Amino acid sequence: MSDSNTTDFTNPSTFILLGIPGLEAAHVWISIPFCAMYIIAILGNFTILFIVKREPSLHEPMYYFLCMLAIGDLVLSTSILPKTLSIFWFNSREIDFSACLTQMYFIHCFLAMESGIIVAMALDRYVAICDPLRHSTILTNPVVAKIGLAMVLRGGMLALPYPFLARRWPYCRTNVIPHSYCEHIAVVKLACTDIRISSYYGLSVAFLVMGLDVFFIAVSYIQILMAIFSLPTKDARLKTFGTCISHLCVILASYIPALFSFLTHRFGHNVPLYFHILIANAYLLVPPMLNPIIYGVRTKQIRDRLLCFCVSTAKANPLRS
C-alpha cells in the first residue's frame, strides 16, 4: 500500500478512501450519528413502502411518487454508508476501481432521479389543487408509471458520463481519495491530465438539471399559492395549504443541504476539508432520514394506517405473563 501512492499507473486496480481527513481520531464517534441516520432512513422508508402497499386507499399518485422517493432514498444512502462505516470501524479503506465508479454512478443517478420525482410530486399537488376535478383523469396509473420511468431514464442517462469520463482519464499521481466515498470531483482530481470536460459536465448538470427542476417546482407553487389565496375562507385556505406542507418540507430537506454542499465546495476555499466532506455526507444522508419522518408525521393517512397496524399487531401478539 505504501508504494501505491507514488508508483506510476494509468489504470489503478484500487483506490484508497481516507474517510474524513483531519478527523481520523473521531471516526468512531462520527460513525454513531451516521449509523443512526442510516437506520432511521432504512426503517422509515421501508415502513412507507409497506404501508402504501398494504393499504388500498393509499394507491394514489401522491403515494406512488412517495414510494419512488423512498426507493431512491434507500439506494442513495445504501450506496455510500456501508463503505463509509467500514472505513470508520474496520479501517477498510480500499475500494476497487470499478466499484468506485459504480458508486459514483449510483450517487449521481439517484440524485437526479429524486430531484425529478420531487418535480413530479409538485405537479401532483398543482393538479390536485388547481384542477381537482380532473386530477384522477390526468394523473392515471399509466401516466404515473410513465413519469416514474422517465425520471429513472433521465437519471441513468445524465449519470452515465460521470464514470465514463472518469474511467478514460490516466491516473499517474496517486490513488488516495481524501473523501469517505467516491465523490466525482474528488476522484477526477487525481488524474494527471486536463479534466475540464468532467468539471464542466458536473457544473452543467448541477445548474441545468437541478436549476430547471427548482424552476418548475417554483412555477408550480406560484400557481398553487394563487389558487389557495383565491379560496373564499381562511379555513379552506389553511386546509388546502396543509396538503402541501409535507412536500414543501421534503423540498427544503433535499435542496438546501445539496445547495450548501455545492456552494462550499465551489467557493469555500478557506473552509477545512473535513467540513466539506461532512457536508457532502450530510446531503446524501439527511434527506433519506427526514423524508419518511416528514410524511409519517405530516400525512394523516399514513399516520393513521401506521397506528392501526401497530394496534392490530399488538392485539394479535399480546404479552403473556
Rank of each mutant, 00 (worst) to 15 (best):
residue 5 N to T: 08
residue 16 I to H: 10
residue 16 I to K: 03
residue 19 G to W: 02
residue 19 G to N: 03
residue 20 I to P: 04
residue 22 G to K: 05
residue 25 A to T: 13
residue 25 A to F: 06
residue 30 I to T: 06
residue 31 S to R: 04
residue 31 S to P: 12
residue 33 P to R: 11
residue 43 L to F: 11
residue 48 I to E: 02
residue 53 K to S: 13
residue 55 E to L: 01
residue 57 S to L: 09
residue 63 Y to A: 05
residue 64 Y to E: 07
residue 67 C to K: 10
residue 69 L to C: 06
residue 69 L to G: 01
residue 70 A to R: 07
residue 73 D to C: 15
residue 77 S to Q: 13
residue 82 P to R: 10
residue 84 T to N: 01
residue 85 L to F: 02
residue 85 L to N: 05
residue 88 F to R: 07
residue 90 F to W: 15
residue 90 F to L: 13
residue 94 E to V: 02
residue 94 E to H: 12
residue 98 S to F: 10
residue 98 S to I: 15
residue 100 C to I: 10
residue 105 Y to T: 03
residue 106 F to R: 03
residue 114 E to C: 13
residue 119 V to P: 03
residue 121 M to I: 09
residue 127 V to A: 01
residue 127 V to N: 01
residue 127 V to Y: 05
residue 128 A to P: 01
residue 128 A to F: 05
residue 131 D to T: 12
residue 142 P to A: 08
residue 144 V to G: 04
residue 147 I to D: 03
residue 148 G to L: 05
residue 148 G to P: 07
residue 151 M to E: 12
residue 155 G to T: 04
residue 155 G to H: 08
residue 156 G to D: 04
residue 164 F to V: 15
residue 165 L to H: 01
residue 165 L to V: 13
residue 166 A to S: 15
residue 170 P to C: 04
residue 170 P to E: 03
residue 175 N to H: 07
residue 177 I to S: 03
residue 181 Y to R: 06
residue 189 K to D: 11
residue 192 C to W: 05
residue 192 C to Y: 08
residue 200 Y to Q: 11
residue 201 Y to A: 10
residue 204 S to K: 01
residue 208 L to W: 10
residue 209 V to F: 15
residue 210 M to N: 14
residue 214 V to D: 00
residue 224 I to C: 04
residue 233 T to P: 04
residue 234 K to N: 08
residue 240 T to C: 12
residue 241 F to G: 15
residue 246 S to Y: 00
residue 246 S to M: 00
residue 246 S to V: 00
residue 248 L to Y: 02
residue 252 L to P: 00
residue 258 A to R: 04
residue 260 F to V: 15
residue 262 F to C: 08
residue 263 L to R: 06
residue 264 T to W: 05
residue 265 H to M: 14
residue 269 H to V: 12
residue 269 H to R: 12
residue 270 N to H: 12
residue 271 V to W: 09
residue 271 V to Y: 09
residue 274 Y to I: 00
residue 276 H to V: 07
residue 277 I to C: 02
residue 278 L to Y: 06
residue 281 N to R: 00
residue 283 Y to G: 00
residue 283 Y to C: 10
residue 288 P to A: 06
residue 289 M to A: 14
residue 290 L to F: 12
residue 291 N to H: 13
residue 291 N to D: 08
residue 297 V to M: 09
residue 299 T to M: 13
residue 299 T to E: 15
residue 305 R to L: 01
residue 307 L to A: 14
residue 308 C to R: 11
residue 309 F to Q: 12
residue 314 A to I: 01
residue 315 K to S: 09
